[in-house]
């Protein structure tokens, strides 16, 4: 008898995606890095089930997802507090959870943050694409789980229960300061524009996703000095479009772009941004190298 465990998406208003630490080998071919939006939370989820930091995990976005688990195994849930319940009883996150029988994990209200991570103490029956298990649009259909889709995994030997200390857990806020370094084209902007950049409470616009966050309150009457020649961009790059809008590129961002890069979000703060959603507020702070 096989002791494979099946994870099935009973329902999910947004797709559940498989993500690892990212796909790094093919940026020069135009393939985005992808990977868990909040890498830090995904890493901790893996540590709680004693798996390597870059093991694939499930990324669950906002409320309303239900996942059935067919049998005995261990999991851990970290990241956003999406009010998770196990068979309709609240369960604790940031710790190893033992599933003892066929169960349903359901995610309710998004109390804080917007992306939760579910790590599995086992090996999912999945094939990597170009060396990574991270979902990338239509090219990796097996890594994007929609209503009714399922994946199987072979559980590993049980590990002892671990709890990630509360004082070290990330906390998520609707209004945050985001640390940046100056971008390569920072000096293309006027003093007035830089003042606006540093003194505005930008809001994340509704048309924001894993590729990038658009911000409200861009530069008024913006005219770009001269056309730039396309060059590398990365998660965290803040671009100013020709209409003066600011956009922060996120994990699924394209690899090159032609807009001036005013600033770049520091690595740890990309994880913070990953947990924010449309309507949330951010302020930029330039830190020195």
């Amino acid at each position: 008898m096989s002791n494979l465990v099946k994870f099935q998406i009973v329902k999910s208003p947004f797709s559940v995606t498989i993500q690892d630490a990212g796909r790094f080998g093919f940026l020069e071919q135009g393939i985005p890095i992808s990977g868990a939006m909040d890498l830090k939370s995904a890493t901790i989820a893996n540590q709680l089930v004693e798996k390597p930091d870059d093991n694939p995990v499930l990324e669950i976005t906002l409320s309303g997802t239900e996942i059935s688990i067919s049998g005995k195994c261990q999991i851990a849930i970290t990241g956003a507090n999406l009010s998770p319940r196990l068979n309709n009883k609240p369960i604790s996150t940031w710790q190893t959870i033992s599933i003892k029988k066929p169960s349903i994990i359901s995610f309710g209200k998004a109390v804080s943050g917007s992306r939760a991570y579910l790590a599995f103490n086992g090996t999912f029956n999945l094939k990597p694409w170009l060396g990574s298990f991270s979902a990338f649009g239509n090219l990796t259909p097996a890594l994007v789980l929609k209503n009714g889709d399922s994946i199987e995994g072979l559980p590993s030997t049980s590990v002892s229960k671990k709890i990630y200390p509360e004082k070290y857990r990330s906390t998520f806020h609707n209004s945050q300061k985001i640390k940046v370094w100056k971008g390569p084209e920072f000096d293309n902007f006027s003093k007035k524009q830089i003042d606006h950049f540093l003194k505005t409470d930008f809001k994340i616009a509704p048309n924001s996703n894993r590729m990038g966050y658009n911000l409200t309150k861009g530069f008024k009457n913006y005219k770009q000095k001269n056309e730039l020649i396309s060059s590398g961009v990365l998660p965290g790059t803040i671009q100013v479009t020709n209409s003066g809008h600011l956009a922060i590129l996120m994990r699924d961002a394209q690899t090159t772009g032609g807009y001036p890069r005013i600033a770049h979000v520091l690595g740890d703060d990309i994880n913070k941004l990953a947990q924010m959603k449309a309507g949330d507020e951010i302020f930029f702070e330039i830190v020195s190298l």
Binding site: F24, L27, E28, I229, S230, S231, G232, L234, T256
Partner: peptide, 23 residues
Amino acid sequence: IEFMIPAFCSLTIGYSKSKTTFS
């Protein structure tokens, strides 16, 4: 170095923060 992005007239070089610094 973790990756490189060659473009028209630039090369972006990604590195591991735990192994080196910008300078």
